[in-house]
């Protein structure tokens, strides 16, 4: 047993600084990744297993139940959110509204994700594939 090593792990070491620097660099990287995403789009696309199943115009408010996928999506004021899901974690509901293409709503148990796509306005309200 290497008991003598364990007590020294109670205090910070130089290698802890390396960890802090790596964590800070990762945070910077993911923030930069988020900020360089495309500008706002005009459509909210709903994906199942990575396949697009619907696109909803952000210009038209409405509530869209996807009963067979277990989620209900709401478009309000050019943003979109999941208002109801039958999953246990409710991560999708808690994500709240998204309005930029850098954002995503994910519901892993239902394999559903919602993203903002498209840069041009259209007169179509809903396209169900």
């Amino acid at each position: 047993m290497k008991a003598q090593v364990s007590s020294s792990r109670r205090t910070f070491k130089p290698s802890d600084i390396v960890i802090a620097v790596i964590a800070a660099a990762l945070l910077a990287a993911v923030l930069i990744f988020r900020s360089i995403a495309e500008p706002n789009g005009s459509l909210a696309a709903v994906f199942f297993n990575g396949e697009q199943i619907a696109s909803l115009s952000l210009g038209t408010d409405g509530v869209y139940p996807f009963d067979e996928y277990g989620v209900t999506v709401e478009v309000t004021n050019r943003s979109v959110r999941v208002i109801n899901s039958d999953c246990p974690d409710k991560i999708c509901e808690k994500t709240g509204f998204i309005s930029s293409s850098a954002q995503t709503i994910v519901c892993l148990p239902n394999r559903i994700s919602v993203r903002i796509i498209g840069n041009t306005d259209s007169n179509i309200d809903v396209v169900l594939n």
Binding site: V30, F33, R34, G50, A102, T104, V106, S113
Partner: peptide
Amino acid sequence: AACFFTGSIYTLYYAPLLLVTAV
């Protein structure tokens, strides 16, 4: 893994908050 399941790298949208809370 979530990026794989959703087929979108933009799932990393969740990363900054999760990273801060993980620390």
